[in-house]
Design a protein around this nucleic acid. Structure first.
Length: 481
RNA sequence: GGCCCCAUCGUCUAGUCAGGUCUAGGACACCAGGUUUUCAUCCUGGCAACACGGGUUCGAAUCCCGUUGGGGUCACCA
């Protein structure tokens, strides 16, 4: 099967998760069939398009591991891949459409159009171009075109019906009376999405268009263009839109939508890929965790479900924790360092201490604050300690902690089991719970009531410093003695 | 509002195309218990859904119609 897919983002803002979502499906399908996956930049909106946004799209896709076979950055046999560089091509096809009577020039001003729309809305009529310039004679139209600003519109046959078969949704039927005479070429000579999209997809040999469902209403325009050019339309597969918690189309205000945000906030790219794949698609078996390679093997666009998936950050965080736990220590150390989450920690230190933290991380961001106590003496959580040792007389606790410190000095260099046994004896001798003793030491050494295991923590901090911390705590708990 | 798309636990979903194996399966979250020196991990269990109404059928989550609900779209933005 010859499979050519594409993703056609517009560089008008941060690289969007929706773009990554659709890119993932397109990329995987092309990979699965040894086809081509094209990244085409739709920068026909000359006021909003910015080169830096295009660069960010590349960065975002590269981070996720979604590499295009053809793109503005790497070129290809069907370039250029930036629509702003294809103006001459579109011009040529527009002329062909006008000559064939499939499109016409429109000289109406923006003011007239606004007025028209306002009137239609007030009258509760459907909005749309009224066809004023459609009846212009070809020679008059051509003459005025020489020195009058104008656009070119699609001449929709309002009496016809457009129907097509969506790969995911089956037959969709839209009466052309509901289709506007869409602008194809703007006053500035740039094509609109509709024209550029059809021309490029055809010229680049795209066989299947997987894109968001928001495009469904404009498919008739595209089909009409294919037909006007005498081209075969590709297969359409309209995938669901990612949603906010309130089910509306995912938006910046209600969710982080920039792929870069996730990169900059401690998420692993494999988390994003796995999570995005799960939005609408699921493997046949019940295992929801998979690698990008496994996804390619199993993916089929036909299996995408159509309810709009709510982007659930809670599940994303869970998945990220799972992915972090799957990394081996070397790899985790590497990710922390290359993404800037390692702080002052050196690689050899990380390899030693990371086993203490890996199970406790849901995010690469979690490491540095959690490990801070190893670098600097923390402020002990006295309130937390008091709560956790309610049943213990503070004076007894101080005595026990001081004695425990002596034992730790005595048993320096001994194994965890031996040291633990020694500490247990201290607790038993003073008839307090072992947990209370450990909690006291824990708060002294790590500052917190929740921490990695105590003995390895003491070893990492160093015995002298650990005991100094215990002394500092006992002095505070019993300042007068 | 017109047009179009969609509809299973709070959320992501399996099951729908080929109706019975569904007292509807899994995951996240939540709750309870276990392991454990705390936390986390890990393990066990629990809570929780076929939007509604008709129809077709011996039988419907699955097919049909309607209703309701949600979403998208109606730009010289994509």
């Amino acid at each position: 099967m010859n499979v050519v897919t594409r993703i056609a983002p517009s560089p008008t803002g941060d690289p969007h998760v929706g773009t990554a979502y659709v890119a993932l499906f397109n990329w995987a399908w092309a990979r699965k069939h040894g086809g081509r996956f094209i990244l085409r930049i739709e920068d026909t909106d000359s006021t909003r398009s910015k080169p830096e946004h295009e660069a960010e799209i590349h960065t975002a896709l590269a981070w996720l591991g979604i590499e295009a076979d053809e793109s503005p950055a790497m070129g290809g046999d069907h370039g250029p891949y930036r629509q702003s560089e294809r103006k001459a091509t579109y011009r040529q096809y527009v002329d062909e459409l006008i000559a064939g009577g499939h499109a016409y020039r429109c000289f109406c001003t923006a003011e007239r159009l606004t007025e028209l729309r306002t009137f239609q809305k007030a009258a509760k009529r459907p909005t749309g171009y009224d066809g004023k310039c459609r009846s212009l004679q070809p020679d008059e139209s051509a003459q005025r075109a020489a020195d009058e600003p104008h656009v070119v519109r699609l001449a929709v046959d309002k009496s016809a019906t457009t129907r097509w078969n969506d790969l995911l949704r089956g037959e969709i039927v839209i009466e052309n009376e509901n289709v506007d005479d869409q602008v194809l070429l703007k006053t500035d000579g740039m094509p609109t999405y509709h024209l550029a999209n059809v021309v490029d997809d055809h010229l680049m040999g795209v066989t299947i268009i997987m894109r968001a469902e928001e495009w469904i209403p404009s498919v008739p325009k595209h089909i009409m263009l294919y037909s006007a050019f005498g081209w075969q339309p590709p297969i359409y597969a309209h995938v669901p839109l990612l949603r906010n918690a309130d089910k509306s189309k995912i938006s910046k205000r209600k969710n982080p939508t920039s792929v870069l945000w996730y990169q900059q906030n401690g998420y692993l790219p494999e988390t994003m890929v796995n999570f995005l794949a799960l939005q609408g698609w699921s493997p046949r078996e019940d295992d929801e965790e998979f690698t990008i390679g496994e996804f390619i093997d199993k993916f089929d666009p036909k299996d995408i479900s159509l309810g709009g998936p709510v982007f659930d950050m809670v599940k994303l965080d869970w998945l990220n924790g799972e992915k972090i736990r799957k990394l081996d220590i070397e790899e985790l150390a590497d990710r922390l360092q290359s993404d800037g989450w390692a702080g002052e920690w050196h690689n050899d230190e990380l390899l030693k201490i990371l086993p203490l933290f890996q199970d406790r991380m849901k995010n690469l961001k979690d490491f540095e604050p959690a490990a801070a106590y190893l670098k600097a003496r923390p402020e002990p959580d006295l309130e937390g300690l008091a709560k956790k040792t309610k049943k213990v007389d503070p004076a007894v606790l101080v005595t026990v902690l001081r004695e425990a410190a002596e034992r730790l000095r005595e048993f320096e260099g001994h194994g965890d089991d031996e040291r633990e046994a020694a500490l247990r004896l201290v607790a038993e001798k003073h008839e307090i719970k072992v947990g209370a003793l450990f909690m006291g030491l824990r708060v002294a050494v790590t500052g917190s009531v929740a921490s990695p295991p105590l003995l390895p923590s003491i070893d990492s901090v160093g015995l002298d410093e650990s005991l100094a911390r215990v002394a500092a705590l006992t002095d505070r708990l019993a300042p007068t003695t």
